[in-house]
Design a protein around this nucleic acid. Sequence first.
DNA 1: CTGTGTGCAAACTCTTTGCATAAGT
DNA 2: ACTTATGCAAAGAGTTTGCACACAG
Lengths: 147, 147
Amino acid sequence: MSKIEQSKIPSALPTPADISARLRAAGLRPTRQRCSLAALLFGQGDRHVSAETLHEEAVRAGVRVSLATIYNTLHQFQQSGLLRELAIEGHRSYFDTNISNHNHFYIEHRGELVDIPGDHVRVDGLPTPPEGMRISHIDVVVRLVKI
Amino acid sequence: MSKIEQSKIPSALPTPADISARLRAAGLRPTRQRCSLAALLFGQGDRHVSAETLHEEAVRAGVRVSLATIYNTLHQFQQSGLLRELAIEGHRSYFDTNISNHNHFYIEHRGELVDIPGDHVRVDGLPTPPEGMRISHIDVVVRLVKI
DNA sequence: CTGTGTGCAAACTCTTTGCATAAGT
DNA sequence: ACTTATGCAAAGAGTTTGCACACAG
């Protein structure tokens, strides 16, 4: 992996300008906190975070941000389509930085969430939705247990 | 629908004895509260309940039971395989009395959950699970929005 | 400057827990 | 009798809110 290759990877670390532009495009003012959080979220490939884990990470990274702002930001990002909220039972909300169609393993005894690699999962045989509604998204969660 | 037919429907209202037996088979002592809740849950076909809705229903039905007991009972029933907990994002837990393989519509703007009729949904192309784990169950949630 | 965003702490919701009482076997 | 279940109220987690201050445009 030469320097040249590195610089050409499409999802290389976004620059502060990239992040500002992305927030602005989503209709959000690029404040210090939002930029820092966006850098954490979108600078390292696909991620699953809860408010708690993102807050810890921000604090560890030296970003001064309150938990309330983490919650606000996660919901704003979700409503702007930058994040997707995941359907996992339990007390805590998870958000996924990968907003394309993909699915998850949920490792029950660890409470851990893992992307299903590849794009091979297909769902067939769905009935037509009830009158006046359309499918916005299909969540497939494959629950795993220890053998 | 003659009386004879009625009495022959396999999933007709379970008798108190049926319910006791079912609880006993699940390793649970058939107490008054558990029997009442089981009657509500399993006496009316497939249902989706939260602790709150089941509690309201019990109170309306004249069953004296505390919310703490509702929670205990729902979890005991789930661990005994009488109920399945549903994977819906959000603050509140839902339980399903239909423990066979089936899937759900989730009507986002109403927060409402509906069984997908029939047994036609198929999920293909799943990768093999990671080492040391097996698939316990696959949840498919089809999210619907108003057109 | 003006309006939006942020931090803090308090409020709120859903859920769990501890312990005395009640009920099942 | 002995054991397990229940009710109550209080505690606990996660999340949201209200308002004064700070920051971006």
